[in-house]
Design a protein around this nucleic acid. Structure first.
Lengths: 278, 278
DNA sequence: TTGCAAAATGTAATAAAATTTCATTAAGGC
DNA sequence: GCCTTAATGAAATTTTATTACATTTTGCAA
């Protein structure tokens, strides 16, 4: 994101023609890739050498080199749309596609993550009397993972992956507790009812789920994870991984919120785990 | 990663010169970016028009267009080096860093993934009488996740996250079974002993773990996941996510191995799950 | 094998694109 | 207002890419 944000930066001093070119590049970077010095010069009303000087001035060898850098930057910003997996793909291709779609899913999650909501969630977790993660099916393992990650904090954290236990817990929740519901689709009846049950008892409920889903509407705070298409039978469950990264983020933010002495606490846990290692 | 994996794919039929060019591109893609048709032609011992035809044959407008696509792909592949998280980073920065380091971890895993071993693992799973995933701590949730993903296949798949149950299982394993041990570090005593126990009974053991670790040495097949530095207290556990992606890949490969009728089976599961949704 | 058709490759010419050179113009300081 | 310096553009040059056409190779049927 260096080139474009550099060009868009109004503080950097540029000659009149250079400003025109920069504006044109920022306005439609993709278009530049299929442009020649001549056509860009014509478009911006400057001469061809000026276009070239613009590129060399930015530190590139010339216009083609600038285009390569721009292409690279745009690629980082906008990951490729995931292709579905064909039954006759080679093993290498399947691997590449899955990694690619996972990456795309992560980028998408990052772009849509609500930082304000995240901070609210971290705040709520820090202050809650107890924190409970609930999920079913694939989301059960996310809930367990979250519990494991947060065990190292001085917060009473639980995970329930059984609908009976979840309901038993929900009826006993108070406004001082915190329930975190995890659901891939946000449309699992049991989990939605669970959230509603907790809300009736005025317990705050966080949803790590698909935005605009029924579950999201029943929560007091939502960390959105796009569901993705899932049209194909072979689609990997990339959004589950996005959920886990969100758990990572929450845990890290919590760690940063802890007072200084807490680092010592973490180190002690590490020392202790060492005894189970070879 | 379409261009490079395409070019590296030995199945695709190419003319002799095209093979030479493809090999050269795969060998050092970065170098191509600062190359002209002439120099690439000289390097590979073909003529300039052949280089051009190679590009147009792949669907690009010409050599410069090919270079742009290559630059974009390399950019996607090579993420920025991850920075550690500072206690005074803003929330947005923390989020960005975690996503970035997760992505870097995924790229690293992809680069080092042994495709041959992967195919062997899929083969072994397809033929095993039973498949059991074992993990402790953070890896427990990976094991559960793997079990959940594979439940949809007609393979008896289990997960054990308790060392007592794991050991009970291990002593009963036969050469027809398959044990899959998951460990972040590959240095957890209990899991290593578990693998050894199974091997004593001539049961094949797959390790999803750090390569060159004690656990890896005790396994008959290893799918390597680099441990990463983990020097920082705030480092997210990115390799756990890499392990999950590997589980995704295994499941997808297994799905592709299934006979045609199996698609119908999957669709039926989906229909059935629909009843639990709102 | 031989001979033919089709594909692949190379040579040389051409076209396109980028860069350099040099003259001109605009901007800023005194 | 005049001079100096930076910015710009026209034209020429060089580099790079592409096309046209000739030649070679390859695959295949008789």
């Amino acid at each position: 994101m260096t080139i474009l944000s550099d060009l868009a930066d109004p503080r950097s001093k540029r000659s009149k023609s250079a400003q025109k070119i920069a504006a044109c590049v920022v306005a439609d970077p993709e278009a530049i890739l299929s442009t020649t010095t001549a056509s860009l010069a014509a478009k911006t009303g400057v001469s061809e050498p000026t276009v070239n000087r613009f590129c060399t001035g930015l530190g590139y060898k010339g216009f083609p080199d600038f285009k390569l850098a721009l292409a690279a930057e745009l690629a980082r910003k906008q990951p490729r749309i995931t292709h579905n997996i064909d039954p006759d793909d080679s093993a290498g291709k399947v691997v590449a596609k899955i990694f690619e779609s996972t990456h795309a899913s992560l980028c998408n999650t990052q772009d849509h993550l609500d930082l304000g909501a995240l901070q609210d969630v971290v705040e709520a977790m820090g202050n809650a009397r107890s924190v409970t993660f609930c999920g079913l099916g694939a989301s059960a393992s996310v809930a367990l993972d979250a519990q494991h990650k947060l065990l190292r904090f001085p917060i009473p954290v639980m995970a329930h992956t059984d609908i009976i236990n979840q309901r038993m817990l929900a009826v006993g929740l108070s406004p001082d507790d915190l329930l975190i519901c995890i659901s891939y689709t946000g449309r699992t009846k049991d989990i939605i009812e669970l959230a509603e049950l907790a809300r009736e008892r005025h317990c705050p409920v966080v949803g790590i789920t698909s935005p605009d889903s029924p579950l999201a509407r029943s929560c007091s705070l939502v960390l959105g994870v796009e569901t993705g298409e899932d049209t194909d039978l072979y689609t990997p469950m990339t959004s589950r991984i996005a959920q886990l990264v969100i758990v990572d983020i929450i845990a890290t933010c919590l760690a940063l919120r802890q007072p200084e002495e807490f680092s010592e606490h973490l180190r002690e846990i590490k020392r202790n785990l060492g005894k189970t290692r070879r």
